[in-house]
């Protein structure tokens, strides 16, 4: 589904990603772990073309490394950014409508589905998105990404700063999305969530992938956790 090979990324002169390679299969949840500042967010932003990059990114058998963000998005690759990028002045409904790329096409997800899954969004459909709580905003941006009918979603730190109960909700939604055949690349700090829902784990350090394995392998590998994750 998504094959990233030897990805390098740069912020000006800083060489942030130094040859990142990984894969996400169809309907698979894969987690990308690592300490702050090792380049996890840069990785997904580089895939979307928001950061200068070199290397190969093959999505659905097609090379997308030279494309603009909107072209990549139209190929079926969605991103949910770290900072809960709702359009604060627009209503919840308008935010969701903006997720639709082509009004003529009927996707897997409709606005009604979203409102059914998250009644709190339905109740506040005409409220400016900026007035929602952090958890609701997180749900909104994930729903907005689904409205575009993607084949793969990259989710950057969805549970950051959320209450435990809301974290649970996010995890449930991600599992539900994967069940419908959509792949997920999850960037997460909370190991428990990542281990609970994902099949495979990649760990990043210093702009490279330093470990890859299944969730159960990773759980037993204390050394990796000590070297690359624990502070």
């Amino acid at each position: 589904m998504l094959k990233v090979k030897d990805l390098h990324a740069f912020y000006g002169k800083s060489h942030i990603l130094q040859g990142v390679s990984f894969e996400v299969g169809k309907g698979e949840i894969v987690s990308l772990l690592g300490r702050n500042g090792v380049g996890r967010s840069t990785t997904v932003n580089a895939i979307m073309g928001d950061v200068d990059r070199t290397g190969s990114i093959v999505f659905n058998g097609e090379e997308i490394a030279g494309l603009d963000a909107y072209q990549i998005s139209r190929k079926g690759l969605a991103i949910v950014l770290e900072n809960r990028s709702v359009f604060p002045a627009l209503s919840v409904r308008e935010n969701l409508i903006l997720g639709v790329k082509d009004m003529r096409k009927v996707g897997r997800w409709k606005i009604e589905d979203m409102f059914e899954m998250f009644p709190s969004l339905a109740r506040r459909a005409d409220v400016p998105a900026g007035a929602l709580s952090g958890g609701e905003q997180q749900m909104l941006v994930m729903c907005r990404a689904l409205m575009g009918d993607p084949d793969l979603i990259m989710v950057d730190e969805p549970t950051e700063g959320l209450a435990p109960k809301v974290v649970e909700q996010v995890a449930d939604l991600l599992t539900e999305i994967a069940k419908r055949g959509i792949s997920i690349l999850l960037i997460e700090q909370k190991l428990t969530i990542a281990l609970k829902i994902s099949a495979r784990i990649y760990v990043m350090g210093h702009g490279r992938i330093v470990y890859q394995g299944t969730s159960s392998d990773f759980e037993n590998n204390k050394q990796v956790r000590k070297d690359w994750l624990e502070v």
């Binding site: 979307m48 928001d50 603009d68 963000a69 909107y70 998005s73 139209r74 969605a78 991103i79 950014l81 990028s85 359009f87 002045a89 627009l90 308008e94 409508i97 903006l98 997720g99 790329k101 907005r144 990404a145 575009g148």
Partner: peptide, 21 residues
Amino acid sequence: LIIRAAVGHPNVVGMLGHNVP
């Protein structure tokens, strides 16, 4: 609607598949 969203957040609008250029 797309223009109002692009005011201040053009890159997010692009990531949603709208032709920002």
